[in-house]
């Protein structure tokens, strides 16, 4: 599993950097089913940033895996919702939920055996 962590503002200046990092992320072990981008530290997401995320989602899809986006600040969710591009990704609140989903979260998903 690979998680790319992004902090700061993603706009026309920084989107190419994000694009490069996403490219590198998707180069890693394409057989691995999970590729995730942690956007919890992102305070602004412009259309240029959305465009690189969308491209990465399609590339991941072509590899047969889903791109997970983590982090639920309004600055990220609003642009995704408004453009309808939220459906291209698997959106999760944070790393904990991703790990829980991938590995099974024993603290919440645990089924107690009857005595």
């Amino acid at each position: 599993m690979h998680v790319l962590v992004v902090d700061g503002e993603v706009d026309t200046l920084t989107a190419p950097t994000l694009g490069e990092a996403l490219g590198a992320l998707l180069e890693q072990e394409p057989t691995d089913a999970v590729a995730a981008v942690d956007l919890d530290g992102v305070g602004f997401l412009a259309s240029s940033g959305l465009a690189v995320l969308i491209r990465a989602a399609h590339r991941a899809e072509a590899q047969g895996r889903a791109l997970h986006l983590l982090g639920g600040s309004r600055a990220v969710t609003r642009p995704l919702e408004v453009t309808g591009s939220d459906r291209l990704f698997t959106l999760l609140p944070g790393l904990d939920e991703l790990l829980g989903r991938v590995h099974g979260d024993r603290s919440t998903g645990r089924v107690r055996r009857p005595d």
Binding site: H2, V3, L4, V5, V6, G8, G23, D38, S73
Partner: peptide
């Protein structure tokens, strides 16, 4: 809280690989 520079903070979480190496 969320406006620090992207270049500074971009990092990757896998083993000890940094984004610099990955890129």
């Amino acid at each position: 809280y969320r406006s620090s520079s992207l270049d500074e903070m971009l990092s990757s979480e896998q083993g000890s690989a940094t984004v610099g190496e990955l890129v």
